[in-house]
Simulated scan of single mutants.
Amino acid sequence: MQRRLCSAILSLEAIVLGLSTIVLVSLTSIATSTGLAIGLGLFVACLLVAGLLRFRWAYVLGWGIQVAALALSAVITAMIVLGVVFMVLWATAYFLGAKIERERAEWEARAAAAPGPDYSSGHE
């Protein structure tokens, strides 16, 4: 569940960062090549990390992407809002997904340990 939630957040964030590349290139004083490298680099990073979330270390990269997206607010002030929103969404997906997985594992362990009905005698 954690992987699904975090992957969804990164996929949505990739769209936002891809679109912010246009703003980064056209409305800031940053050189076009630098703006493209930053915007499209973060776009590609989101998609790659979303696909690599089966590895625990990829979540660290996901946190790094959140920090980088928030750091874009130094250049595009509107990104402070989007950066904070995606940071909160990422943290929620990360921690809530982990909690759901823990609770599901506990539930499955209890279900496996509980005796089931005895069908061998014809009575339940």
Rank of each mutant, 00 (worst) to 15 (best):
M1K: 03
M1P: 13
Q2A: 09
Q2H: 03
R4I: 14
L5M: 11
C6W: 01
I9Q: 02
L10Y: 00
L10Q: 00
S11V: 13
S11C: 12
S11Y: 05
L12C: 12
I15E: 08
L19T: 05
L19M: 12
T21E: 04
V23D: 13
V23W: 06
V23T: 10
V25Q: 04
L27E: 14
A31V: 06
T32F: 09
S33L: 14
T34K: 03
G35Q: 02
L36F: 07
A37E: 04
I38K: 00
I38V: 15
L42G: 06
L42D: 09
F43V: 09
F43M: 11
A45T: 08
A45R: 00
V49M: 06
A50R: 01
G51C: 06
G51T: 05
L52V: 02
L52A: 15
L52C: 09
F55W: 11
W57R: 08
W57C: 09
A58S: 14
A58P: 06
Y59L: 12
Y59K: 08
Y59W: 04
G62M: 07
G64R: 05
I65G: 02
L70T: 11
L70F: 14
L70Q: 04
A71V: 06
A71T: 07
S73C: 13
V75A: 12
T77Q: 12
M79C: 07
I80E: 08
L82I: 13
L82G: 02
V84T: 15
V85M: 14
M87T: 15
V88N: 04
L89C: 08
W90D: 09
W90Y: 13
T92D: 12
A93E: 08
Y94Q: 10
Y94S: 11
L96W: 12
L96Y: 11
K99N: 10
I100E: 04
R102C: 07
E106F: 02
W107A: 15
E108P: 05
A109T: 14
A111W: 07
P115I: 10
G116S: 14
P117R: 13
Y119H: 07
S120I: 00
S121M: 10
G122M: 06
H123C: 05
E124A: 14
